[in-house]
Nucleic acid binder design. Structure first.
Length: 455
RNA sequence: GGGGAGGUGGCAGAGUGGUCGAAUGCGGCGGCUUGCUAAGCCGUUGUACGGUCAAUACCGUACCGCGGGUUCGAAUCCCGCCCUUCCCGCCA
């Protein structure tokens, strides 16, 4: 972790047992790592994590030994203290025992510090290990191994040369890149007139679809979150440089509402009846796009701030596989409603995110730029995030607690949806036909006017 | 920004520096009683980590917002932080 981040992080504390409790737990099931180190190592290697886990296991063994030693001494100390208390109650002299206890206390202090240090080291290491991919995820170093699962609809046909959105919308005065960059720098943009309104209309459409048809609860969360929240979903500690941080605080601008929505049940022990929980919300998303300099510099394809409707599911472990399929369908419903041409893609191990065990992307075809653009990424994180944020549930009738499974998916991301709509439904005169589904949210109009009619 | 109050187990709510993992109530679970319903009675009821292990079993340690300190011993005393809430001021 960067020094600057360390400085603003809450300390991991003296709770030497439950390094999970309040600051978020380890990501991998440590028992699984102990029992099947080779298998875990192999799965992690598929995801590009080559550091190995041998030294983690060593550290784990060391920590446990130190913990046991500490606990033995501590038990001794507690007995001594009780004897002292009993003695003093009778008025007898306990000074010998107290001297003994005092020496013991000094020893224990060291033992505790050692166990604590090892626990913290172990946790720091574990937090940087990505989630293991599902065994059936195609193995590849990069996106070349992705597998197209389905293709929906037909590419739109034109009797003229379709324009890229930056030309189409720029010429219409609806997309103002210059205004955005003059205010906040390159990578920022401004939507004007009908385009700004269209974005709001689409947000409204999507949220109504998900709440009314798919059973989600709409939640409007803060756009900033504390570091421990980001740690819960997996952006921290590894990806601090991808986010905007608020100077002088522990707050980051969220890169996605997944962060705040997935953490909505943080630290809770839920009842089985509470599950599944479906949450959806609209937020702007802020991304530094560090390392992406020079890529997709034109238009709205890759920008530092964009709007997105996000979907989150908190479910029982046995349901997460099926819920991922459902989630993809719910995100696709947006594109279906708008009549867009899209495909679903199973991401290979090399293209998945840190926290995901299995990811299916939805890519929409944009004829102006002649590319498939990702508008949604649906991931099953299984218990990876739940462990970090300590979200569990109590099985009905059963004993104990289990970690929930958490899924996230965009439902869907906006600028690229605007791109797809504009480029797919553009007319020769520069105007854009609006699909029927969006019209009720756009004052009933069937057209996004081009230059002449604009403003 | 200034001042006050407070953060205890699923919830509500006690708690004297020493046998407090924590009274009590509610809820939950098991049982009895009961012709439904309601009520009553008895028992039980947290989580995590570590160890032993055949074990859903036993032992140990930790957890009373988070962290640090004092002490032989801290829910209880001291310090810092976070959060909640009330009053005042200020700006929307």
């Amino acid at each position: 972790m960067s020094p600057r981040l360390r400085a603003c992080r809450r300390t991991d504390g003296k709770n030497i047992y439950n390094f999970a409790a309040h600051q978020g737990g380890n990501m991998l099931d440590l028992h699984l790592v102990r029992n099947e180190p080779d298998r875990v190592e192999e799965l992690l290697r598929r995801k590009g994590f080559t550091a190995g886990i041998r030294d983690i296991l060593e550290l784990d063994a060391e920590r446990r030994a130190a913990l046991t030693e500490f606990e033995r001494k501590r038990a001794e100390q507690k007995k001594l203290s009780k004897r002292i208390g009993a003695l003093r109650k009778t008025g007898a002299d306990a000074s010998d025992l107290m001297r003994e206890a005092s020496e013991l206390a000094a020893v224990i202090k060291d033992l505790e510090a050692k166990a604590e240090r090892l626990g913290r080291e172990l946790r720091d290491r574990l937090l940087r290990v990505p989630n293991v991919p599902d065994p059936d995820v195609p193995v590849s170093e990069d996106e070349s191994g992705n597998v197209v699962l389905s293709v929906k609809g037909e590419p739109p046909r034109f009797d003229f040369e379709p324009k890229a959105h930056w030309d189409l919308l720029g010429e219409a005065g609806l997309l103002d890149m210059e205004l955005g960059s003059s205010l906040a720098g390159s990578g920022f943009y401004a939507l004007r007139g009908g385009l700004a309104r269209l974005e709001r209309a689409l947000i409204d459409l999507m949220i109504r679809l998900h709440t009314e048809r798919h059973g989600y609860e709409e939640v409007a969360t803060p756009y900033l979150a504390r570091d421990e929240i980001l740690e819960g979903t997996g952006q921290l500690p590894k990806f601090a440089d991808d986010m905007y941080r608020i100077e002088g605080s522990e707050l980051f601008l969220i890169p996605t509402a997944e962060v705040t929505l997935a953490n909505a049940r943080r630290g809770k022990v839920l009842k089985e009846d509470d599950l599944p929980i479906y949450l959806c919300g609209y937020t702007p998303c802020f991304r530094r796009e560090a390392g992406a300099a020079g890529r997709d510099t034109r238009g709205l394809i890759r920008v530092h701030q964009f709007s997105k409707v996000e979907l989150i599911k908190i479910v029982r472990p046995e349901d997460s596989e099926a819920e991922l399929e459902k989630l993809v369908g719910e995100a696709c419903a947006v594109l279906d409603a708008l009549g867009l041409h899209y495909r679903t893609v199973l991401l290979s191990t090399g293209d998945m995110t840190f926290s995901s065990a299995k990811t299916i992307d939805i890519e929409v075809y944009c004829p102006g730029v002649d590319r498939w653009l990702e508008v949604s990424s649906c991931s099953n994180c299984r218990d990876f995030q739940a462990r970090r944020m300590m979200t569990r549930y109590k099985p009905a009738g059963g004993k104990g607690t289990r970690y929930v499974h958490i899924l996230n998916g965009s439902g869907v991301a906006l600028p690229r949806l605007l791109i797809a709509l504009a480029e797919s439904y553009q007319r020769a005169d520069g105007s854009v036909a609006l699909p029927e589904a969006v019209r009720p949210y756009f004052g009933g109009a069937d057209t996004l006017p081009g230059k002449e009619a604009g403003r």
